[in-house]
Lab assay of single mutants.
Amino acid sequence: KTVEVNGVKYDFDNPEQAREMAERIAKSLGLQVRLEGDTFKIE
């Protein structure tokens, strides 16, 4: 899975870890996480 923030992509081998990281980043920035294919987009 991939986490994308402001056009910057971070790859994770563990999908659960990617989801947790995406949620943590989104919460700290006051944004939403949206799953698009294999990418968690933070917008």
Rank of each mutant, 00 (worst) to 15 (best):
K1F: 15
K1G: 08
K1D: 02
K1H: 14
T2W: 13
T2K: 12
T2R: 13
T2P: 05
V3Q: 01
V3C: 13
V3E: 00
V3H: 02
V3Y: 02
V3N: 00
E4N: 06
E4W: 13
E4A: 06
V5A: 03
V5M: 09
V5L: 11
V5W: 14
N6M: 14
N6V: 04
N6Y: 12
N6K: 05
N6H: 12
N6I: 06
G7V: 03
G7L: 02
G7P: 01
V8L: 10
V8D: 05
V8I: 12
V8R: 12
K9T: 09
K9G: 04
K9A: 08
K9Y: 07
K9M: 08
Y10K: 04
Y10D: 00
Y10H: 08
Y10P: 02
Y10R: 06
D11F: 15
D11C: 15
D11N: 14
D11A: 14
D11T: 14
F12R: 00
F12E: 02
F12C: 15
F12T: 02
F12H: 02
F12Q: 02
F12P: 03
F12L: 04
D13Y: 06
D13V: 10
D13W: 05
D13F: 09
D13M: 11
N14M: 08
N14Q: 08
N14R: 07
N14K: 08
N14S: 13
P15E: 13
P15T: 12
P15C: 15
P15K: 08
P15N: 08
P15A: 13
P15L: 11
P15M: 12
P15Q: 11
E16Y: 09
E16N: 10
E16P: 02
E16V: 12
E16Q: 13
E16I: 12
E16S: 10
Q17D: 13
Q17E: 13
Q17R: 11
Q17V: 10
Q17N: 09
Q17A: 13
A18F: 06
A18Q: 01
A18E: 00
A18L: 07
A18V: 03
R19W: 11
R19E: 04
R19V: 04
E20A: 14
E20N: 09
E20T: 11
E20R: 14
M21W: 15
M21Y: 14
M21H: 08
M21F: 15
M21E: 08
M21L: 10
A22K: 01
A22V: 07
A22F: 06
A22W: 05
A22S: 03
A22D: 01
E23C: 15
E23T: 07
E23N: 11
E23Q: 11
R24D: 06
R24L: 10
R24F: 09
R24K: 13
R24T: 08
R24I: 10
I25P: 00
I25E: 02
I25Y: 05
I25H: 02
I25Q: 01
I25R: 00
A26R: 01
A26T: 01
A26G: 06
K27H: 10
K27C: 15
K27E: 13
S28Y: 14
S28E: 14
L29F: 06
L29P: 01
L29V: 04
L29S: 05
G30W: 01
G30K: 04
G30T: 00
G30P: 00
G30D: 05
L31A: 13
L31D: 02
Q32K: 13
Q32S: 13
Q32M: 13
Q32N: 11
Q32W: 03
Q32L: 11
V33S: 03
V33P: 02
V33C: 15
V33L: 08
R34K: 12
R34P: 01
R34G: 04
R34D: 04
L35N: 04
L35C: 15
L35T: 06
L35H: 06
L35G: 02
L35M: 11
L35A: 06
E36W: 06
E36Q: 07
E36N: 05
E36V: 14
E36K: 04
E36P: 02
E36A: 07
E36S: 06
G37R: 02
G37Y: 03
G37P: 00
D38T: 07
D38V: 01
D38Q: 04
T39N: 09
T39I: 14
T39Q: 04
T39G: 08
T39L: 07
F40I: 13
F40T: 06
F40C: 11
K41D: 05
K41N: 04
K41C: 15
K41Q: 08
K41W: 13
I42D: 04
E43V: 14
E43L: 12
E43M: 11
E43H: 06
E43G: 13
E43Y: 13
